[in-house]
């Protein structure tokens, strides 16, 4: 530190000390802290109960409708969400975890591939649709190419670090994997705090196609990290500009919304930065324009951060052209 810098530093310290010396001791308002925290907790619990009730009611209605629709003689199938309308475009592109590999493939399933069930989600990444996934499956069976598609955790991390471009969201914090459905919590190491991680999002993946070697596909995120993306509705048709919004819990948040499509890789076709937000379960809304949409399905992602990392939490939904 130079002599001049030391001099300024000394004068700055004096000024700061002098300035703060005139700040009187604040009153003890701890009771106010407890009351406000209690109110927020009660509101949060009430919201949870309301969401749970609505979710149960929706589940009951869905089951009843599905049961009636699948009765013998019924000619229609139930579609609770918009079916995937994938452009049968090339296989996974963008940043996968490493080059294609030619290692020996695991023994292919001895049973014949199951007929693909109706895919009720929107295929976000890495495949554009069932045919796309089937193409990879055939190549995998022939030469063991890109086996990471069989691992939901690797697929989830590739989605965040590659497709979304969130290089810091590179840890799998937790995972729940079923036969056809997986939820992978991705996150980051908290800076300057050893052995602490924080979850940025819970990625929802499903098996796309039939057979034991059907690859995993990202179809969305669970809205459980204090940021949600409720509009546009999942799988709804969108056009530019699209109104986006949801709810957020946090302090001094800054929400960045982007629109992506597989054929453009990690380059967004729409970008809106940034929407100031904060509070407890507070609504946020904005609109984002996009241009050059070619794919049938586009990804909308809302992220927030800036406290520890540029991106600390995010939520994803799907729109259709």
């Amino acid at each position: 530190m130079s002599t001049g810098e030391r001099d300024v530093t000394t004068r700055l310290r004096d000024a700061l000390a002098h300035q703060t010396a005139s700040v009187p001791a604040p009153e003890d308002r701890w009771e106010d802290v407890e009351v406000r925290a209690g109110q927020l907790l009660r509101r949060r619990r009430w919201n949870r109960a309301a969401y749970l009730t609505i979710g149960l009611a929706a589940a009951v209605v869905t089951v009843v409708v599905a049961a009636s629709a699948l009765e013998p003689g019924s000619s229609r199938r139930v579609t609770t969400v918009a079916p995937a309308t994938s452009p049968q475009t090339p296989v996974s592109r963008g940043p996968g975890p490493g080059p294609e590999t030619t290692t020996a493939s695991p023994a292919p399933s001895t049973s014949a591939p199951q007929p693909a069930s109706a895919f009720h989600y929107q295929p976000l990444w890495p495949f554009a649709g069932e045919a796309d996934a089937a193409g990879w499956q055939a190549r995998y069976r022939a030469g063991g190419q890109q086996p990471w598609h069989l691992d939901p955790a690797t697929t989830a991390i590739s989605f965040t670090t590659g497709y979304l471009g969130y290089a810091d969201i590179n840890l799998v914090v937790d995972r729940t994997v079923g036969p056809a459905d997986a939820h992978v919590a991705v996150g980051y190491a908290v800076p300057s705090t050893p052995n602490r991680t924080s979850v940025a999002a819970i990625i929802h993946l499903v098996k796309l196609g039939g057979g034991a070697d059907a690859p995993w596909e990202v179809v969305g995120t669970d809205d459980s990290r204090g940021i949600s993306l409720a509009a546009p509705a999942y799988g709804s048709r969108i056009s530019s500009p699209v109104a986006v919004g949801g709810r957020i819990t946090g302090v001094d948040e800054s929400i960045h919304v982007r629109v992506l499509q597989q054929s453009s890789g990690s380059t967004p076709i729409g970008d809106r930065c940034c929407v100031p937000a904060g509070g407890t379960d507070t609504a946020w809304a904005t609109s984002v324009g996009f241009a050059g949409a070619r794919d049938a399905v586009v990804t909308l992602v809302a992220s927030t951060g800036g406290h520890l990392l540029a991106v600390e939490r995010f939520a994803v939904t799907a729109g259709r052209r």
Partner: peptide
Amino acid sequence: SEEVVQDAFVNAYL
């Protein structure tokens, strides 16, 4: 300034 600190403690509580 006092309100900012109160808010900070409410968030810390939660």
